[in-house]
Design a protein around this nucleic acid. Structure first.
Length: 572
RNA sequence: UGCCCGAUAGCUCAAUUGGCAGAGCGCCUGACUCUGGAUCAGGAGGUUCCAGGUUCGAGCCCUGGUCGGGCAGCCA
C-alpha cells in the first residue's frame, strides 16, 4: 500500500466499495492526483432520500480523500427550472451537513464557454445543424433493433453550419425548427450515440440568464463540460447514465479538454413509498399529502419536518452502502431504526399521554402539588433534570390499564401495583364505568413509603408507567404518521391498477394528548421522546395556545409484539 | 427478438487477486432494567437463479438458458 495514500483520510481505514477502490486505483496510477466531486441536481424538484445517498457518496468521498466537493445546479432547461427549487435544494444540502464552502456553481454560468466549444466541434466537422422536426428525428433514429438513417443535413458545410448555429443563438428561428447535433454514428447499437442533440432552440426565460439565450445545451453536451470546467476528478452519478458514458467521453475527447471520470452507482429506493418527481406532484396535487414537506413524504424537507436528524440519514446511507452496480430498495424499517438509534441519544424525555384515562389517587390530598424530579435524558447525564408536578388526579395511557389482564400484562389492573415513573407505587382499587360499561375513571392508592423509588420491604412492581397531572397537564395535537403506502412496493398492483390504490388510508391519524407543562418550552423542530410512546417533533403549525407535535417514529413496542404472538398463538 | 446491467438467508445487501458463504433488519430463547424502551447473550434460517465447462479448488472465470431492470426526449 502506498504510504501517501494511507495517510490521507480514505486511504487505509476508510470503507471499501467499488467506487472508492476505483478512485484509489486512479490515484495510484496517476490518472488523478487529487479527488474532487460534485453533486449536480437539476433545480426542478425537491430533494429526496435517494439524493441523500448521492450526496453521501459525493461529499463523503471528497472528505475521506481530503478533496473538494461542489454543489452545482445543472440548469440547462429553462422550461422546468425555478429559483424556488434552487433555494430549497441549497437549504436541504446545508441541512444535511454536506459542506460545499463557497463552491456553489451553476451550469448556466458556463453557457458562453459551451457555445465556444460547440463552434470548435462544428469547425472540426463533428457537429452540424439539423433541420429535422422532432417527429422526423424520432423516425430516423431507428429502433432498439434497427439502425437509424443519416439526417439529410448531416453533410452541410462548416460555413453553413456556423452561420445557422450563430443565427440559432441570435433567435432567428422558432422553437423546435433546428438543433445542433453531434456527428457520431446513426448505426450505433447505443442509441445515445446516434447523433445526439447538443442544442435546442427555446425562446424561454431562464431563472438565471433571463432572455439572453434562445438556445440551450442538452444534458449530454453540458454535463461533461461542467465537470471539466470545475476540475472534477470523479463524476459520480446513478446507473441510468451508464449508457451515456461513451458520449460523455466522446465530447471531452473530441474537444481535447480536461477529462474527468464518470462512475455510476445504483439508485436508492425505500419501501412503502414512491420516489419520483412525477409522483410527488401527483401526491401533492391530488391532495393525498399536504405538500412536498409533508412529514410522510420521503423528501428531505418532509423528513426534517417529521423530526429526522441528518445524522440518522447519514447512518441510513452508510447502512445501505454503495453496494454493487444495481439499484437497491431498502426496507423503510431500517430507516426508522436509524432514526430511533439517533434520537435515543439526544432527545429530552417528556411525559405525555396520547389516549388518557383519569386516575384518582384516593390517599393524596386534594389541592396538593408535589414536584417530582425527573431525568431529562438517561442517555446523557448532562441534560440534567426537571420538575414534574404530581397531584391527586392524574392521567395515564388507556392502554396501560386492563380490567382483565391478559397473560404477561404487567401494567395496571384491578388489585395490581405498578410504579409511576419517578414517583411512587400505586395500586388500582376500583374501576368506574358508565352505563355502557365504558371505563371512565380509575381509583387507586399510593404507597407513601415508596417515594424514594424503593419499597421498605424490597418489593418491585413489574411494570412502570408514565403519567401526567390532570391539573397541570397541557393539551396538544399529535399527528401520528404511518407509511404512506400500505404495501412495501406501491407498484405491486393488479393489471390496470394504480400505485395510488395502495395508498394507506391511515397514514395520518390525529389525536389529542395531554403532556407535562415542559412541553410549552418547545420551539419548532425541537425533538423529544414521550417516554414509552415515541419520538415527537414540534411542528411549525404550532401557534400560541395550540401545540402540534409530529410523531417522528414510535418506540419499539415489545408488548404489542407479545400480544400479537398471543393472538396468533390462540388460533394456531 | 439489438445493446447494457442484475439474480447470494424471510427482507435489504456484503464477500480482497478464485481459498471453510457473512452483516443489518426481522424472527425465536434467555438475562437485565424505575421507559415491556435502551442494552447484553444465545438460536433457527442457504441447492449463492438453472444447466454445462475450466480449475486442486468457483458466489467469483467461460458457454448456453431462465427471470427481472434500463435504453428509441429537442428531459436530466
Amino acid at each position: 500500500m502506498s504510504d501517501t495514500l494511507s495517510r490521507v483520510p480514505g486511504g487505509a481505514e476508510a470503507p471499501s466499495d467499488f467506487i472508492r477502490d476505483a478512485i484509489r486505483q486512479d490515484l495510484r496510477d496517476g490518472r488523478f492526483d487529487r479527488v474532487h466531486t460534485r453533486f449536480p441536481p437539476e433545480p426542478n424538484a425537491y430533494l429526496h432520500i435517494g439524493h441523500a445517498k448521492a450526496i453521501w457518496i459525493d461529499y463523503g468521498i471528497a472528505r475521506e480523500f481530503g478533496g473538494l466537493f461542489n454543489l452545482r445546479f445543472d440548469d440547462t432547461n429553462p422550461l422546468k427550472e425555478e429559483q424556488e427549487f434552487v433555494d430549497a435544494i441549497i437549504e436541504d444540502v446545508r441541512w444535511l451537513g454536506a459542506d460545499f464552502g463557497d463552491r456553489l456553481f451553476f451550469g448556466s454560468d458556463y453557457f458562453e464557454q459551451m457555445f465556444t466549444w460547440a463552434v470548435q466541434l462544428i469547425e472540426k466537422g463533428k457537429a452540424y445543424v439539423c433541420d429535422l422536426s422532432p417527429e422526423q428525428m424520432r423516425e430516423t433514429r431507428g429502433t432498439l433493433t434497427s439502425p437509424g438513417t443519416d439526417s439529410p443535413f448531416r453533410e452541410r458545410s462548416v460555413e453553413e453550419n456556423l452561420d445557422l448555429f450563430t443565427r440559432m443563438r441570435a433567435g432567428d428561428f422558432p422553437d423546435g425548427t433546428r438543433t445542433l447535433r453531434a456527428k457520431i454514428d446513426m448505426a450505433s447499437p447505443n442509441l445515445v450515440m446516434r447523433d445526439p442533440v447538443m442544442y435546442r432552440i427555446r425562446h424561454a426565460s431562464h431563472h438565471r440568464t433571463g432572455d439572453t439565450w434562445s438556445i440551450y445545451p442538452s444534458y449530454d453536451w453540458a454535463h461533461g463540460l461542467e465537470d471539466s470546467i470545475e476540475g472534477i476528478t470523479h463524476s459520480l452519478c446513478s446507473l441510468e447514465y451508464e449508457i451515456h458514458r461513451p458520449l460523455y467521453d466522446w465530447f471531452l475527447d473530441e474537444l481535447g479538454i480536461y477529462h474527468p471520470r464518470q462512475i455510476e452507482f445504483g439508485r436508492l429506493g425505500l419501501s412503502y413509498t414512491v420516489m419520483s418527481k412525477r409522483r410527488f406532484v401527483e401526491l401533492v396535487d391530488g391532495g393525498f399529502v399536504q405538500g412536498y414537506d409533508d412529514p410522510r413524504m420521503p423528501t428531505l424537507a418532509g423528513m426534517r419536518r417529521r423530526g429526522y436528524r441528518p445524522e440518522a440519514i447519514w447512518d441510513f446511507c452508510e447502512r445501505a452502502g454503495v453496494g454493487g452496480r444495481a439499484d437497491v430498495t431498502i426496507d423503510a424499517h431500517v430507516l426508522e431504526d436509524c432514526v430511533r438509534v439517533d434520537l435515543n441519544k439526544v432527545s429530552r424525555r417528556l411525559f405525555a399521554v396520547l389516549n388518557p384515562i383519569k386516575v384518582v389517587l384516593l390517599n393524596v390530598p386534594e389541592g396538593e402539588t408535589r414536584w417530582i424530579e425527573a431525568v431529562n435524558n438517561p442517555e446523557d447525564p448532562e441534560a440534567g433534570t426537571r420538575k414534574v408536578p404530581f397531584t391527586r388526579e392524574i392521567y395515564i395511557e388507556r392502554d396501560d390499564f386492563r380490567k382483565e389482564p391478559p397473560p404477561k400484562f404487567h401494567r395496571l389492573y384491578p388489585g395490581n401495583e405498578v410504579r409511576l415513573r419517578y414517583a411512587c407505587f400505586i395500586t388500582c382499587v376500583e374501576v368506574i364505568e358508565d352505563a355502557d360499561g365504558e371505563i371512565v375513571e380509575l381509583h387507586a392508592t399510593i404507597d407513601p413509603e415508596t417515594w424514594s423509588g424503593d419499597a421498605p420491604d424490597g418489593r418491585k412492581p413489574k411494570g412502570t408507567i408514565h403519567w401526567v397531572s390532570a391539573e397541570h397537564g397541557v393539551e396538544f395535537e399529535a399527528r401520528l404518521f404511518d407509511h404512506l403506502f400500505g404495501v412495501p412496493d406501491p407498484d405491486d398492483v393488479p393489471e390496470g391498477g394504480s400505485y395510488l390504490d395502495n395508498l394507506n388510508p391511515d397514514s395520518l391519524r390525529v389525536v389529542h394528548g395531554i403532556a407535562e407543562p415542559t412541553i410549552r418550552e418547545l420551539t419548532p423542530e425541537d425533538r423529544v421522546q414521550f417516554e414509552r410512546v415515541g419520538y415527537f417533533c414540534l411542528d411549525r403549525d404550532s401557534a400560541s395556545g395550540r401545540l402540534v407535535l409530529n410523531r417522528t417514529v414510535s418506540l419499539k413496542d415489545s408488548w404489542a409484539k407479545i400480544e400479537k404472538a398471543q393472538a396468533s398463538g390462540q388460533k394456531g
